[in-house]
Amino acid sequence: MSFSVATKNELARVTGRQSCCRLAELAALIRMDGSIQISGGRLVSLNISTENAAVARKILSMIKGLFDIHTEVLVQRKTRLRKNNVYLVHIPPQPGVNMLLNRLGMIDRDGRLVNDIREDLLKKECCRRAYLRGVFLGGGSVNSPEGNYHLELITDNEKHAGYIGRLMQKLRLPAKLSERKNWHVVYLKGSEQIVRFLNIIGAHSALLNFENARIYKDMRNQVNRLVNCETANLNKTVNASVRQLENIKLVRDTMGFEHIPVSLREVAELRVKYPDASLKELGGFLQPRLSKSGINHRLRKIEEIADNIRRKKF
């Protein structure tokens, strides 16, 4: 089960305490996944489709609880691509359908379709949170935190996408909008933003799982960075030691240690004796002790002598 599906299954069990919140959530679900059909004689019916059985049950429960209207659930099976079940919540023509659509802000009192969201549906913050929950259930997805951080809400209505973006901005979520073929996408990229969104819509178990995975991922990345850094430093130290030994052997074999200053001879002999020691450790062997920079300075002097020898040879 994907992280998105697990999150939706959790949200399908979250019920708004007040009827206004349930009304806002249902309105969002219908705007995301619903279609209104008007047949002969101006008979109006409503279809809401989803691939998630838990979401279909929630839609059915909210409609019955808020409107007590006859509703059917049909199950269809896709024949292309992923052969998932599609659950169709169908409200056939009957008295009360127009009233339902009017209360949800889909049509006005004269039965004309309404594109704008009714502001009175989202006066309270709890209703705005519920609306975003419905939007996510209807067209949302969130990546597993083990991969790239990405949450998106997809709708085929550009105006609705803009409204969702503004609603998220009011809740201090810096949502961004983009287009993908014929779809309009509202998305969040930052892990902190996604955690806040999950908290707002009430997906608390998903939030905890997201945080646990994120902490583990961050710790693993930090350990990898430290290991890479240590490996790079070790390689650098080994390469420097090999180069220093080559310089020292060249000086010893060509001109001999007796022809270089005593201070340089002491460091050269220590490096030959302790090829794996750090500069700090080499400085500790001397009396008086010599700093790391002092050891490095003397090794540089030996390197200059070796370079002069090489130039004379060639």
Rank of each mutant, 00 (worst) to 15 (best):
C229W: 06
N228G: 15
E192Q: 08
H184I: 09
E266W: 01
R243W: 05
A206Y: 01
I194F: 03
I248L: 07
I164F: 04
R166A: 11
P174I: 11
A232G: 10
I164R: 02
S263A: 12
I200S: 04
R252E: 09
K159H: 08
S144C: 12
H259S: 14
E211R: 14
V272C: 12
M255G: 03
E266A: 09
R180W: 13
L207C: 07
V238M: 04
G147V: 00
K170W: 14
P261L: 00
V142S: 11
S241E: 02
D276N: 12
N143F: 15
L198A: 05
N199S: 13
V223W: 14
V267T: 11
L234D: 09
L264I: 01
N148A: 14
N233A: 13
Y149G: 07
V185F: 14
L188H: 06
V185Q: 11
F257N: 03
E179C: 13
E192Y: 13
S144P: 00
A268E: 03
L151P: 06
S205C: 01
N199H: 09
Y163V: 07
A203E: 01
K273N: 04
M168G: 01
K181W: 05
E152I: 03
E246H: 09
G147L: 12
S241T: 08
V227Y: 07
W183F: 09
L270S: 02
V242W: 08
M255W: 03
P145Q: 07
R180A: 11
S144Q: 07
N148M: 10
L177I: 15
R180N: 09
K176E: 13
P275V: 02
N143C: 15
K273R: 15
E246F: 12
D156I: 10
L226E: 13
T254F: 14
P145F: 05
N224G: 01
G139L: 04
Y216C: 03
A175P: 00
R196E: 04
I248T: 03
S144A: 10
N148V: 01
L207A: 12
E192T: 03
H204W: 01
A203V: 01
S178H: 08
L167Y: 10
Y274R: 07
